[in-house]
Amino acid sequence: MRQYIFTFLKGIAMGAADVVPGVSGGTIAFITGIYDTLLESIRRINPRLWPLFRQHGLVAVWQHINGNFLVALGLGILTSILSFARLISYLLVHHPIPLWSFFTGLILISILHILKQVKAWHTTSIIALVIGAVLAWSMTVLHPVQLPENNLSFFIGGAIAICAMILPGISGSFILLLLGLYATVINAVKAFDFGIIAVFAMGCLVGLLSFSHLLSWLLRKHRNLTLCFLTGLMAGTLPKLWPWKLADSQGVLLNVLPSTYSQAMQVNSQWLLAIGTALFGIAAVWLLEKVSKSDPA
Rank of each mutant, 00 (worst) to 15 (best):
V199E: 05
F229A: 11
L115A: 11
T184M: 03
L253Y: 14
L108A: 15
N268C: 04
Q266T: 05
T260Q: 09
L49H: 08
F155S: 06
H213C: 08
L287E: 00
S83M: 09
F8I: 07
A198H: 00
I127V: 15
G232F: 06
F84Q: 03
M265N: 07
L92M: 14
A183I: 05
S110A: 11
T184W: 02
Q250N: 12
R86E: 10
S24R: 04
G195C: 03
A284M: 12
G195S: 12
D18R: 00
V185K: 05
F200A: 10
R48V: 05
S292I: 07
G57F: 06
L218S: 09
L176C: 06
I5F: 15
L39F: 02
W217P: 00
P51W: 02
W286L: 12
K290I: 14
N151S: 15
N151R: 13
I196A: 05
A159P: 07
L241C: 05
I65P: 04
L225Y: 12
L238Y: 02
S125V: 11
S259M: 04
T277P: 08
G157F: 08
H95I: 04
A159H: 09
Q270Y: 11
S210A: 15
A164V: 11
A164G: 08
V134L: 13
D193F: 03
M165V: 11
L230A: 08
M234I: 09
L254C: 02
N255A: 14
L209C: 10
G157W: 11
T37E: 09
N224K: 02
R86T: 13
V141A: 09
I131F: 14
T79I: 10
L215V: 12
L279T: 07
Q270V: 00
T7D: 11
L254H: 15
G15D: 07
A274P: 07
V130S: 05
T79C: 14
N224E: 14
N46M: 01
M165I: 14
V145T: 12
D36Q: 13
A85E: 09
S110E: 05
D248A: 02
L99D: 07
A13P: 07
K293L: 09
F194M: 11
S292H: 03
Q55V: 10
